[in-house]
C-alpha cells in the first residue's frame, strides 16, 4: 500500500516519489497544489488565461511522462519549474514563429502598461510584481512564492547564480519604486485623516 497518511500533509517530494511508484492519487494531489501556482507563474508571460491554462496542463503531462526520472533528493518544485520554464520557452518560440515576428508583441506591451497603470492603484506586492515583466517577476515568484534558493532558481531558469542575484536585485529596486507612490499616498491619507481627526 503506497498511501500511508493524510495525503494533504505529505511533502511534495514524498508525493512525487509515490507518483513515480504509480500512485495516481499522489500525482493528482501535486496537480492540486501546483496548478494555481503555475498559472500565476505563466500568466504574465502569455497572452491570455487560456494560454496559461494550456501550458499548465501541458506541464503536468510532461511531469507525468517523466516522473520516473525524478530524484527525490532534489526539491520537487525546482524540478517542476525547470520543466515549466522549458515548456514556456518552447511555447513562446512557437508563437513567435507562428506570428512571424521577433521581440515582444504589441499586445503584451499594452497589457503590461495597462497592468502598470493598475498597479498605481494597487498596494498588493504580488500585483506590482506581475507588472515588472517576465524575468524579474519569475525570479521573485521562485524566490518568495516557492522559496527556492538562488542556486535552485538558477538551475530552473538555466542561468548563473550571479545572474539570478542581479535579477532579484533589479526586481527589488523596481518593485520599491512602484510601491513607493502607493505607500506615499497611503501615508498622505493617514496624515490627512490625522489632521481631520
Amino acid at each position: 500500500m503506497i498511501e500511508n497518511g493524510p495525503i494533504e500533509r505529505k511533502p511534495d517530494e514524498e508525493l512525487a516519489r509515490e507518483a513515480r511508484a504509480g500512485s495516481r492519487l499522489s500525482f493528482e494531489e501535486l496537480v492540486r497544489r501546483y496548478k494555481p501556482r503555475l498559472f500565476v507563474y505563466f500568466r504574465p508571460r502569455l497572452g491570455s488565461d487560456q494560454d496559461a491554462e494550456d501550458l499548465v496542463q501541458e506541464t503536468f503531462f510532461k511531469i507525468y511522462r517523466n516522473i520516473r526520472h525524478y530524484d527525490p533528493a532534489f526539491r520537487f518544485s525546482a524540478w517542476l519549474y525547470t520543466a515549466a520554464n522549458r515548456l514556456a520557452v518552447d511555447s513562446y518560440r512557437r508563437k513567435k514563429t507562428a506570428a512571424g515576428r521577433i521581440g515582444p508583441t504589441v499586445a503584451n506591451d499594452a497589457d503590461l502598461s495597462v497592468r502598470a497603470a493598475e498597479d498605481t492603484r494597487s498596494t498588493s506586492l504580488w500585483d506590482a510584481a506581475r507588472t515588472l515583466g517576465g524575468k524579474q517577476y519569475r525570479v521573485l515568484w521562485l524566490r518568495y512564492g516557492e522559496e527556492l534558493s538562488v542556486d535552485d532558481i538558477a538551475l530552473s531558469l538555466g542561468k548563473s547564480p550571479l545572474a539570478v542575484r542581479l535579477l532579484l536585485h533589479r526586481a527589488r529596486m523596481n518593485l520599491m519604486k512602484r510601491m513607493r507612490p502607493a505607500s506615499a499616498r497611503a501615508a498622505a491619507v493617514t496624515v490627512e485623516e490625522t489632521k481631520a481627526g
Binding site: 494555481p36 498559472f39 500565476v40 496559461a52 491554462e53 498588493s124 506586492l125 500585483d127 518568495y144 512564492g145
Partner: peptide, 16 residues
C-alpha cells in the same frame, strides 16, 4: 509581505 499576500493572490486565480 509576499508570504502574507500569497493566499489572496492565489485566490484571484480563475478556477482553471
Amino acid at each position: 509581505q509576499f508570504s502574507g499576500e500569497m493566499p489572496a493572490f492565489l485566490a484571484k486565480v480563475p478556477d482553471t
